[in-house]
Design a protein around this nucleic acid. Sequence first.
DNA 1: CCGGCAATTGGAAGCGCTTCCATGGAAGCG
DNA 2: CGCTTCCATGGAAGCGCTTCCAATTGCCGG
Lengths: 346, 346
Amino acid sequence: MTSKRPTIDDVARVSGVARVTVSRVLNGGPNVRDEVRARVMQAVEQLDYKVNPQARSLAGGASRLLAFVFASDPENDPNSYYESALELGALRACLALGYQVLVQNVPDQTPDYRKRVLDLITTQRCEGLILSPPYSDDVGLIQAVLAQGCKVVTVSPGGPGRGTTDGVGVDDEAGGYDLTRELLRLGHRRFGFIAGLEGHLSADRRLKGFWRALEERALGEADCVVLRGDFTFRSGTHLAPQLLDHPLKPTALVCANDDMAAGVLSAAHARGLSIPGDLSITGFDDAPVAAIVWPPLTTVHQPVKVLGQRAVELLVSRLNGVNSTPEPVFQQLKHAVVSRQTTGPA
Amino acid sequence: MTSKRPTIDDVARVSGVARVTVSRVLNGGPNVRDEVRARVMQAVEQLDYKVNPQARSLAGGASRLLAFVFASDPENDPNSYYESALELGALRACLALGYQVLVQNVPDQTPDYRKRVLDLITTQRCEGLILSPPYSDDVGLIQAVLAQGCKVVTVSPGGPGRGTTDGVGVDDEAGGYDLTRELLRLGHRRFGFIAGLEGHLSADRRLKGFWRALEERALGEADCVVLRGDFTFRSGTHLAPQLLDHPLKPTALVCANDDMAAGVLSAAHARGLSIPGDLSITGFDDAPVAAIVWPPLTTVHQPVKVLGQRAVELLVSRLNGVNSTPEPVFQQLKHAVVSRQTTGPA
DNA sequence: CCGGCAATTGGAAGCGCTTCCATGGAAGCG
DNA sequence: CGCTTCCATGGAAGCGCTTCCAATTGCCGG
């Protein structure tokens, strides 16, 4: 079909040097005269030569392969905005850096989830993993991966993941705090909170920030009903009634992400409540859905795509030794409260 | 760090056979006694041996690598539901089939988009491509890829892409038709239609089906205003006013996908219109957003995740020779009108 | 009982690249 | 001026696997 692709030997022949010299040029090695370097590059150009990554990794022992691991339940909706955006950012950074990223869906309910992640290293020869929640706080998993000689960067680690390896994320605690302050300013004093899945520690930090804001106003557990959802729209609609019918009569419902907030909003509509007149609702993430629902959702923006990008950059800087600080690096990006129209005076 | 991984030679030594025999067992080759096969498998088990895919592809000339190409504008939102779901389906099928898939975002406005797709083949040694719209109808691109000896499967080709290579999709024309019939049944006679981006032929087929249903009732161009959007929520909100203020006074707005329909819905809310009392709105895809907006959106369901899965299966069956029919195969999956609450009597 | 054929197994040769080590010449030093 | 040192380059080995071909065995009909 295709005439065979040119190999490094073809380049060597055309440019009149040894194969090893071509390899040096290609890898930016030292000790090559400029004149020779130029000659090789010209041959590369002329032949439209591309290195064979398989051969390179066989010989060099470096696969230049990363894996992005996410946990959504495969039987449900496709990856959420959060994961899609993370992935897109990672993809883009990889393109720029000459790495490839394998996207892997490893449901965390599966009993052998750890094995499946480790298999990425043994089977696919990945050199680095990007772990999203809840894996970003699974210290046992992270250490097992590290022990295999594979680098790890976590996205939105909530606590223990933080000290174990490099990570990126926003200050979720501050995000929750800022948002709650806003609600308090509007006069709300009775709250409902829909937290995220067990084990998603970064989402729990949002709740922590919420509590902190409440305490500053001498409010506490008696002033808020807390429920746990699973980050989906459906869990928002399912949980909303329990909050709305609670004797506490909350005036504001705070959700750990936008999808659940959208679910709550939908349930509120179904009851004929006026938003934000009868009830204020907030989300977290600033996913597209936040702008899509009616009325548009007040939420906390986090730059998810950039998070994905930075994660890869961090990982690659470890792999090529640019970054070799002994202690884990955590890159914290800025969040911002986005006040839209689901929040109003109590 | 890690003790070196076992190689095929280790397995050969442990099981007391030659390396080539191990290779045969691993690849399900014929002519190996059951006793030997068992012995080898046991050694594999014992050593926790995994083939090195890089070495295999170097030696065997098969990379077992596919690429999923999508076109969303990288500066905008992350991949839409349509693309995420496609990808997830593809990912899952690959896992089952022992292939890997590289996800590639190639914006189609970029002048060198064709080169970037072809580079996937030369640089990454992909053996098969999954092309989503609008690439699925870019015959020039498809043929260029095919000419490189790389297989192609298209998702939702709208016309020309169909005869060129294998594909999967639903009957978009029938989907548009069925939906419109429903609207006609409800008494609507004046329509607005927001079509998709130029070049997305499968989306245009939805419009074609719409016209067909109209013609059956002796309605035609005079009874509908057609605008083109770009599949985003924003384009729905932007375009809605032109439709709502049009002298034709449409009673139903039909959109080529759910995101745009959500945009229209939001714009309608902003004007204080009651849905579906004052206006009916429909989408297409049955993305999660269709159930999230208020009121939930009437739309046409298509099994996007399954589409991605089938695409990979089709591709792999070509690659391993299971399918070798000379003419292109098109696998058509079923669509279904989902009547929710944005449609009512005119 | 023997040539012949199929079933099983192994030896050897690479796939395209990098890494290790050797070579030759230019430059630096006392 | 003879020595070491550094730079630029090449030769050779080998990464872990598959594929091609040769060798060995067992069993058939004649």
